[in-house]
Amino acid sequence: MRSWVTLLCALIVVVTVPGLAGHASAQASDLRFPQKVEAGTAFSVSTTGSGSATLYIIGPGDTIRRVVHLGESISFGPDDLHNAGHYVAFLVSGSSTQNAQFEVTASHQAATLSFLAKPSRLPVNLPNGVSGVAYVFDIFRNLILQPQQISFELSDSSGRAQIRSATSRDGVAWVKMNSAAKAGPAQFQAEVASVRNKRVIQQVPGDPCSIRMTAHGLGQKDKARVALETEPVRDCNGNPVPDGTIVTFTETYQGGQSMVDVPLKRGVAKTELPSHNGAVISVASGVVMGNEIRWSGGL
């Protein structure tokens, strides 16, 4: 009875550990590859026996078939295996096959950076508004999994820069940075071991900080209208708000209201409204309210 239980346990182990049989055969191999080989390096593997055999090396990155002489070393040049990954090897001689497995690892020398910077356009002075993600590759386009120190630099149009560094983990590093106070194109650069990749981020002014307008009559020219004009509209960092931003003038008078939307032109908004004595005129852009004027020069 006990032997049946033992047998059943053995069956369960074999069934639930599918790699068991495979590992056993791999361990029985006489073919001795180095456990790890750096991509693009030469190495050799010794063989035993005599006669010729066919060597197969198979992986998702490279495939090699080569006729070799048993008893001699098999040499691999720098160009033979350059894609990082796990490889299986078979040395077939007649009815006998020797197996091996080994890894090709990425070179430690960074050669390219895949750099994603987002967004490409954002308001000034936004905390953690810019994100940068960098993947580090070697010359063979293998992801370098060993930690690498990556420097990120975001410099605005006046040359002021924020610098952060991050250590890559499993080939990737990332940062978040604040957008600058000054509007204009900013250079966002990632650098590792003198390999650089640059992106341009457009930093645009934020919403108007405050709006101030003046009103004056048109005199003899047109006594029935009042001229309204804002001062140059700026965001809270002093950047001119872009032309085209809509400014709304509203005039409220006894028995009525007049409203006009005007785009900023050269930083200011201008318009004319009917002149009503005692009217209240206000100005706004988006959610930002400007000053109010009580007009007493009308008809």
């Binding site: 055969s25 796990h86 078979f90 077939v92 197996n99 497995q101 890894e103």
Partner: peptide, 9 residues
Amino acid sequence: TVGTQHVRT
């Protein structure tokens, strides 16, 4: 068929 190997990686 040249052979089959079990891989864990």
